[in-house]
Every structure is written in structure tokens, then in C-alpha cells.
Amino acid sequence: MSTSPTTTDDPELPVRLEGGAVALGGRPVLRHVDLTVRTGDFLALMGANGSGKSTLVRALTGLLPLTAGRLRVFGHAPEELADRDRIGFVPQRSGAGSGVPASVWEVVASGRLTRRRLLRPLSRADRAAIHDALEVVGLAGRSRESISQLSGGQQQRVLIARALAGQPDLFFLDEPTAGVDLPNQVALAEALGRLKDRGATIVLVAHELGPLAPLVTRAVVMRDGRVAYDGAPLGDHEVHDATFGEPHAHHHHDHPSTTGHRGGHDHTPHVAAPLERG
């Protein structure tokens, strides 16, 4: 992987981040992060709480500005990416709902905004995409219900359907399995499996993979704001093991930070900026 700046940016390369750094409230959180996501990757961003994995995803979506480095999403800087409809973002499910009731259909329909013009009603294509998105997550029968009547795991699936309704090529999911019970995690994995079969590129933040594990084709482990491992998928127990299971695995990667890490567990208490949720 070359880190030298390229003069032409491939408009088909989903993500290319070179030397990325992000500060939260003036404190450097991510430093020297290089990450390239290729079409068709199912990438799991892993790491302990406070390791910077959510911060990285929020930087890749353009929600957090880079303090250094260069980010290209489909060949453009995030703020000038005209075709926003190529990105689908599934944020962490917020605990509090909004003050006014909203139906499942309405929330999923807001995912079409990347493709709708101002002051135009929903077209037939919009409706078909919304319906299709609800089918994929298995909630087509509940589109008229208020979102507050659904369980946490079902609400998470609604957020995935909302991103899917925009028919993006690249999905960012921030902790989709956090606080979701096992049957709903399985349903979630089925929905993501269908996306993967359709050729979507998926980047998801996860503390533990659970039923998602068979889908993952590549793992990136963050530690203290830097990439500590980038390679073949890891089991949940290996992520927190400083050697990343290398005695058992036969793959060996020449990524600079995998060779540079020190052995032993890192038990140093992490000091995170107040806004960072890890």
C-alpha cells in the first residue's frame, strides 16, 4: 500500500485515508491512520472502548474534520462529494426518541433524501426503494407502526433500512449490535448478508462480532487512536490479545503498525475526550 499522494483519485475506490488525524476538543485522538477500503470489502473496525473506532467512522463519513492527512471517498473529499447517495450511514441508536411520534415508514423514507429534489412528492421509485429496504431488514409488515413501539434491535434494523433506502454503494455502521439481543443480532446479520450479496461495501464498528463474524472479510483493530492490526478476520477473543492470534494464524501482514506493536496487554487507563464514545 503506497502512502504517497496520488495525483488522480480513483472515483470507484470507496475509501482512501492517508495519514489521517482527528482531534476532539483539541485533544489528538486519531493519529497517522492509513486505511483503504476496496469495493466489496466487509470490514469490521474493532478495538476496546476509547480506541477510536467510532471516531474513525465519523471522520470517514465527514462528520468529524481531519486535522491532518488526506481523505478521499469515491475520489472526492467528503465535504465536496456531490453524489451523497453513494454513502449510507447507520449511526449509533440514540436512547431518546424524538418528541413527536414517527412511523417506521417515515423514518426509512428520510433515507431517500439523498436522491430527492426539494418540494417533490415521493416518486414511484422512491416508494419501491423504501419498501425494498424494509423487506431486506424483515420489517415490511410493520411500516405503519410508531418507531417507539419497536424493540431496540428492531429500531436498529429500521436505521439500517433508512440507510439502505438511499441505495448506496458504501455503508458505514456504528456499533449496530450494541445493546441488541441475540435473535435480533441474527436478523441483523441476515440483513447485512443480503447487502453483501448485492455487492455493497460495508464498514462496521463492532465491539464484538457475534453472529456477524462469518460475514466479515477483513478486520482492522484500533488501539489508542492508531491502527494496530489490518488483515484477515479475527475471533472476538483475538482482538483483545496483543499478538492478534498470530501464533495460530498463518497470515502475516507487512503493515507498518502490526510489526511495530509491543507485546503484552495494554491495561493503561485510557483518557478520552468527553465527546468520544469509543
Binding site: 465527514g62 462528520l63 414517527a102 428520510s110 458505514f172
Partner: peptide
């Protein structure tokens, strides 16, 4: 509606 419901999603969109 989208912005009031989820500001971050709206920004990414």
C-alpha cells in the same frame, strides 16, 4: 423531519 429526527444522519446525507 429528517434533521430533527437524526441530525448526524442528515449531515451525512
Amino acid at each position: 423531519f429528517a434533521i430533527a429526527h437524526d441530525q448526524e444522519f442528515a449531515r451525512v446525507a
